[in-house]
């Protein structure tokens, strides 16, 4: 299972506590994980990737294994530890404003 952590506002919106666990078929990429996340929690559509172009929203970051993966290609494989479920894929709201 792929582990995904969400910022507090998105956990509230999706009505989840703690990590989300997702089954992802095929190669584990940023796009595949986010597609699976939005499939299971449709209310998150548009909150992480914009609705018009599917691009990461400007104040969203993707972290895993102590790396910033925000600017990786959406179809690039995520780290093995994420694919294996030993490390979470972290969706993070950038520190800005209040």
């Amino acid at each position: 299972m792929i582990r995904v952590t969400l910022p507090a506002h998105l956990r509230t919106l999706a009505q989840v506590d703690g990590e989300v666990q997702l089954q992802v078929a095929g190669q584990v990429t940023q796009r595949a994980v986010l597609d699976a996340l939005e499939e299971r929690y449709p209310m998150l559509r548009g909150t992480i990737r914009d609705r018009a172009r599917g691009r990461r929203r400007a104040f969203i970051r993707f972290f895993a294994c102590e790396e910033d993966l925000s600017n990786e290609q959406p179809d690039a494989p995520l780290p093995e530890a994420v694919a294996a479920g030993s490390e979470p894929f972290m969706v993070v709201g950038a520190m800005a404003g209040g």
Partner: peptide, 28 residues
């Protein structure tokens, strides 16, 4: 809405006692 997470539309059918996200696909 927020600058972080974009636009949502919420809808209530009971005068605001409960809410559920509605559609947020605003394509030109």
């Amino acid at each position: 809405s927020t600058g972080w997470f974009g636009q949502l539309i919420q809808r209530s059918d009971d005068g605001g006692a409960s809410w559920a996200p509605a559609g947020n696909d605003f394509n030109y």
